[in-house]
Amino acid sequence: MAEIIVVTSGKGGVGKTTTSASLASGLARHGKKVAVIDFDVGLRNLDLIMGCERRVVYDFVNVIQGEASLKQSLIKDKRFDNLFVLAASQTRDKDALNKEGVEKVLKELADDGFDYVVCDSPAGIEKGAFLAMYFADQAVVVVNPEVSSVRDSDRILGLLASKTRRAEAGERVKEFLLLTRYSPQRVENGEMLSVKDVEEVLGLKTIGVIPESGDVLNASNKGEPVIMDMESSAGQAYDDAVARLLGEERPMRFTTVEKKGFFNKLFGG
């Protein structure tokens, strides 16, 4: 059975696509067979972040409408043979997706021996976001340590607990928080909500804390998920998050201010 993970947030621009690309690549690096699906019909971007934008021939909507087979539409990743991207349609609107179609695609992936399906949700709480979460077994709620993002995440948590297949069956979707754009220095200065603050407000555990890092932009410029850059703190933090998703216990890194030595301070480290 394929494990279905939705990456969602409510608010836009918090790092859902960056997170989807990195989680999918990280799971593939662990040898899992992974598909990552862009549910943002009309505003596709996962293909750019994964670096496969010029190889999109058929997309998710083509498969659902029966215009192409799933096999024709899955784009094999350049870096991992066991990772596939299903792009969103750029020309259709969100009504082109429907529950039955999505279910059929997910079932076909499970029958094809996929271990994980990562669903990259669009922002908002409309149809695309609803369909991305409906069949999920697990949810990674991406949140910035900032008031509007935290509030929107709570809204999404409410929907995960009521408007999903699992909720309708009296079960629960396994939910995790993933904090992005975290700045330990600003937390220490009392200018930013801490991991603990966000966990307390939302009543949920964190699976990863991604520090604010210029490497995220560099990675997206290149079309390479930031998790591939294991020199960067963001890449390492995503790698930790993937390990935790797979049940490994790892201590949180990059959540405290690095104490610079006297000489580093003098010469700007």
């Binding site: 935290v150 709570d154 809204r155 409410g158 607990a161 009296g170 407000v201």
Partner: peptide, 21 residues
């Protein structure tokens, strides 16, 4: 501020979302 607004929103009509859980 978040504690107050989230508690309030959870208890409103949409807040029934917590019942299955």
């Amino acid at each position: 501020r978040l504690r107050i607004i989230i508690a309030q929103e959870r208890s409103l009509a949409g807040g029934r979302d917590y019942l299955p859980l």
